[in-house]
Design a protein around this nucleic acid. Structure first.
Lengths: 327, 327
DNA sequence: CCTCCTTTTGAATACGTATGCATAATAAAA
DNA sequence: TTTTATTATGCATACGTATTCAAAAGGAGG
């Protein structure tokens, strides 16, 4: 019943060999204009499509990028997803989307990526055990940690310069005055959250500013409820919140409590997601230059996919402070 | 340099035939416990993973679902994406993510889906020419339009009962009183927007309520700016906005103009995205039961992938009104 | 027309796996 | 033990394509 049209069928109809059909679809192969025309006509008539699986089998390489993502609720990541997809499309690569609920990618998903022999892997919003990461290295599959780092230096990672950014945020808040500050962490296991804390506290302790840390989970709900808890005890002169979506929760909590921003306290987020610019929030935040981050990631992967070296590096892009109405 | 470990390698190390190795990884095949153990041990030692491409080549079926999506900015869709991914994972299927910028899926992307011989396709937030849709039918690839319909009845589509929902919204707003209403359309080309308009106006005209339609594009920005335009001329007693993300824009525009909601006018959205429940908005809206919609889609696809019939149907789920503070 | 060089083509093979078939091993029955 | 039924295994082949190699076709120059 299933009538899969193969190159052989096209060859027969076009009166050429299967090899010639193959050459028509393989960019860079030598075919005369005449046979090309014949083949394409026959292919169109039969509705032929070269089978990517057979191709990959013989070339031993695929055109699939595995993209691992967790926090689809944070608008930052869908944006990352669509940019990667668009960028890779230009190079003929498709994206296999892997969604993980846990912070660490599951074995099941790792199996999938290896079974599909993906050409490259991007881990955005999750982590990966060292053992698993090495299994990709063994298979010479290039791997990038996007917006996360891993404990060793053996892997390529691309992220914002969180340390520098959080230092500048601290300095910015100091200049606005105030004596007590709060850092609202995301998931404390993540490098992202820890680095942002580190830069922030470094500057504060230089200036003897009282500072307290609270922990949450990078979600709106988390930001909202933690902020309610915080203001029960004290109202700091400013909040630095580990990402925007939490910061929006903080703003809503403050509003609910009748606390005015920026008069009574100030709030700074991180990411510059679209919503932080909405009139209802007008959040001061740090812009992560997604374009640059995506570009660096794609360039590295393309290079490694063409010629695997396993080169490791920690790439950081700078970004900039977006000053709005919450400071 | 690339050392791809094959079933043959494992067979040699384990002292069995390649067939036996294959049978270990093929669920349902008969292998003795003894050889299974030997094979798994050898596989672990060598780091073997069955090549999904070779598998697909011989079985003539893949475990890949093509998911086509456009509006990644609307939080409704990332949620849909992650639910589909999670659900299909349970059945061993992976998701190939296809992002399109245009309302209609591009030929390039169609080629990709056909080249990968995907087991099934879901079109969420985009459309597809009849010709292209038929080419999937020719290849016996089941296809679902999710939250969109197509002009003919030859395809399976799953969506919310927009007609009924918008009728009930109209009735709800009528009951709240008011004499003039506005429908703020999304992209007017979409069945979604048109149906929501149809049900809404049907009830209004039954009650001789003055009504005006404005058009936008399903985005926050669109909702914001269109609302500013609207209130320049008149302030309707209520807005029915074709989706939540636009409705949030409308609310922010009204707030900017100092128009109180629900006192001066009322606003109803559609989707019940997470943000519509946030304190800053508290938007009354229609909940689309994503769970049900995903479930119906997955069930249909699984059935068709096991045994293709090409059955067409238009499935609609009901959903319910979520009453919050904007009405 | 012939020679020499370049380009195009076809035949054959390989990629890594699943599967029909025949055979070997095991278990059950007698 | 022998016979029969059942299960497990290996051999060989096929899936649809890219690619090597040799042969054919085409072009340039005389």
């Amino acid at each position: 019943m299933k009538k899969t049209v193969t190159a052989k069928d096209v060859a027969k109809l076009a009166g050429v060999s299967q090899s010639s059909v193959s050459r028509v679809y393989f960019t860079g192969a030598a075919v005369s204009e005449k046979t090309k025309k014949k083949v394409l006509a026959a292919a169109a008539e039969l509705g032929y499509h070269p089978n990517e699986f057979a191709r990959s089998l013989i070339t031993n390489r695929t055109k699939i990028i595995g993209l691992v993502m967790k926090g689809v609720q944070n608008p930052f990541y869908p944006q990352v997803l669509s940019q990667f997809t668009a960028e890779f499309k230009k190079w003929g690569y498709s994206v296999l989307f892997v969604h993980t609920n846990n912070e660490e990618i599951q074995n099941e998903d790792v199996e999938t990526l290896l079974n599909y022999n993906v050409a490259g892997v991007i881990i955005t919003d999750a982590t990966m055990s060292l053992k698993v990461a090495k299994s990709f290295k063994n298979n010479e599959i290039p791997l990038v940690f996007f917006n996360r780092k891993i404990h060793t230096n053996d892997f390529y990672s691309v992220s914002c310069n969180n340390l520098n950014a959080s230092r500048r945020i601290a300095e910015f808040l100091l200049a606005k005055g105030g004596t007590s500050m709060v850092y609202l962490a995301g998931n404390e296991q993540t490098s992202t959250s820890r680095e942002r804390e580190e830069g922030f506290t470094e500057i504060l302790s230089d200036h003897n500013i009282s500072y307290k840390k609270y922990s949450s989970d990078f979600t709106y709900e988390g930001g909202y409820h933690t902020a309610l808890e915080i203001v029960k005890h004290q109202l700091p002169s400013a909040f630095f919140v580990a990402n925007d979506i939490m910061a929006l929760g903080v703003l809503d909590a403050l509003r609910k409590k009748g606390i005015r921003v920026p008069e009574d306290t100030k709030v700074v987020g991180f990411d510059n997601i679209e919503m932080s610019g909405w009139p209802a929030y007008q959040l001061t935040t740090w812009e992560q230059p997604i374009n640059q981050m995506v570009e660096k990631t794609v360039n590295y992967l393309l290079k490694e996919m063409a010629n695997y070296t396993g080169m490791a590096r920690t790439v950081e892009v700078e970004g900039s402070l977006i000053e709005r109405k919450t400071t």
